[in-house]
Amino acid sequence: MILRLDALGVERNGRALVRDLSLEVGAGQIVGLVGPNGSGKSTALRCVYRALAPTTGAVLLHDRDLTALTRRESARRIAALTQEGGSELDFTVAEIVALGRAPHLRGNQALGAREQELCRRAMTQLDVLHLADRGVLTLSGGERQRVLAARALVQEPEVLVLDEPTNHLDIRHQIELLTLLRASGLTVVIVLHDLNLAAAVCDRIGVLAEGALVAAGTPREVLTARLVRAVFGIDATVVPHPLTGDPQLLYSLGAPA
Rank of each mutant, 00 (worst) to 15 (best):
R71V: 15
L60Y: 12
L81A: 10
T55D: 08
L60C: 10
A94N: 13
L61H: 12
R64E: 14
G86M: 12
R64N: 10
G86P: 09
I78E: 10
S74I: 08
T56S: 11
A94E: 15
E73G: 03
L45A: 11
V97P: 13
L52M: 00
P36T: 07
L45N: 04
G35W: 00
R72K: 14
G86L: 12
A44Y: 00
L33Q: 06
V59C: 12
A98I: 05
G86N: 14
L52S: 04
P36S: 01
A51I: 05
S39D: 08
E95K: 09
V97G: 13
Y49Q: 13
T56M: 08
L61A: 14
P54W: 10
G57P: 08
G40S: 04
S87N: 15
G35H: 05
T56G: 14
E73W: 04
E73H: 04
L45T: 00
A51H: 13
L61D: 15
R46F: 04
S87T: 12
P54Y: 09
T67C: 15
Y49R: 11
P54V: 01
T43E: 11
L81H: 09
G86H: 13
N37H: 10
G40N: 08
D65C: 12
A75E: 12
L61N: 14
S74N: 13
R76C: 15
L45V: 08
E95V: 01
S39K: 00
G86Y: 01
R64T: 14
L66W: 01
G40R: 10
L60H: 06
K41C: 03
L33D: 13
P54N: 00
R77H: 07
L52R: 05
T43V: 12
G38T: 05
A94W: 06
V93P: 09
V97R: 11
L69T: 03
T43D: 14
L52A: 01
A80T: 09
N37M: 03
T56F: 07
S87K: 12
T92N: 13
A51P: 01
A53V: 00
L52G: 00
K41L: 09
V59T: 07
R46V: 02
V97W: 03
C47N: 02
Q83I: 02
G85R: 07
D90W: 11
F91T: 03
T70I: 04
D63R: 14
G57D: 08
T70C: 09
F91C: 04
T67M: 11
G57K: 02
E95C: 04
G35I: 10
A53E: 02
P54F: 01
G85I: 03
Q83W: 06
F91G: 09
F91E: 11
